[in-house]
Design a protein around this nucleic acid. Structure first.
Lengths: 131, 131, 131, 131
DNA sequence: GTGGTCTAGACCACG
DNA sequence: GTGGTCTAGACCACC
């Protein structure tokens, strides 16, 4: 498992950390109950400020994706709650709509975008056993 | 044609304006060469500062979606460039991936997300002539 | 002799008129003492506001390139003054420097820019007898 | 490294800032990855509003000449893209033509203008190592 | 009437 | 400390 951070991107560093953890998680490279690197380790590995990693971990915990146990470390949560948050749903639909509209102006066809979707799902599901 | 702004959202006001114009444009409710409200009109209609609208219009012009003619006003551009920017493409794919991953954690299935996509496209294309 | 105006360009309309008159003049298609179209004729020909043409003519007269004679019309001046204005010179050098710097960032080499210069002079001088 | 602004000039302040940064960059007095003054520092040094500097920096970033890293500051970009934009090229040629035509009316000969060009290039290239 | 520029001053997100 | 966002209000250039 390794992380990649690009400080030049306009997206905040802690958001990049969040996205990476989520992606590794979704791809099965980080499994439930697996231990994450400590804040200090990850920050020195990524050459970023510990506060930045800490903020990312806090946000991930708030989203129920990881849990921290004092004195033991940080771990991937056991399971997803079956509950579907309607607010989150609405935000996601809005985000999807924005992607679709921007694609439209970028000259991406509906078919092309659906192909992208297929491919992303394939990549995520494909190596769940290899981690 | 009317706009809606929610100052409580964390997304910047000028971004909301940009998204709304793009959406109205994509849905065909704003047609090429059509005049947009003046900066002053739109700002007073939305109860926001004229500079905020101005910033949104400038960004939309930079993206080639609208053009402004000195002393006359702001208009929807005539046509989209057929050119596909590889950088933009990559950013869009990344954005789509983030939506998919977040959907995963929100308990949204692949089938559900595809249904959303279908629906969004239907809404966009459906009323091009009714505006 | 004909003019072309593009209201979409960010450069002001009256500036475009000024540039066109100057260029036609420099190319010899407008000769000293030649009569220019009246403000009304030119404005209706160009589909722009008479005030815009009027402003352009005023500025051209201020620069000594044309003169208006009440009741007779507007004419190209007889000759250039030999006097070289140091302020104008400095502004021109600054403008040239800006073009060169922007060319640099656009990836245009020194050789390429010099070739452009040659070509522009050739085009200007080439048809002085054909007008 | 120091900047000079003349509020009396008709050219917008933020444009003057842009030009200065570009020139220092082209002359090698600002090198890739070098840090620029912070928005606040530069604005107080120039006695202009921070927003004005900010606008200049944003435009420079849009042009790919500088990059800003959240919370760390603003830096000269690493490299120029080799890509040559045809639209930019056309705009530059037009600008060069205008300079040449205006020089003509100011009594500047072709030889003189070429000498200027030589000199500007010499100044730009000459002190890349002295900064 | 239109948009463009600039100022002053406030608050927030980020590292 | 860094830049980003927003407001309020002024003045100007253009058509």
């Amino acid at each position: 498992m390794y992380f990649e951070i690009d400080p030049k991107k306009s997206i905040p560093l802690y958001e990049q950390v969040i996205q990476q953890v989520k992606e590794l998680c979704a791809r099965g490279l980080l499994k439930p109950n697996e231990k994450l690197p400590s804040v200090r380790d990850l920050s020195s590995q990524m050459l970023i400020n510990p506060n930045t990693v800490s903020k990312a971990y806090q946000e991930l915990e708030r989203q129920g994706i990881i849990i921290t146990i004092r004195g033991r470390g940080t771990f991937i949560s056991e399971e997803l709650t079956g509950y579907i948050d309607p607010k989150k749903t609405e935000r996601l639909q809005q985000a999807l709509k924005n992607v679709i509209i921007d694609s439209h102006f970028a000259g991406i066809s509906e078919i092309e975008l659906k192909r992208w979707t297929e491919e992303i799902y394939k990549k995520l599901g494909g190596n769940g056993d290899e981690g």
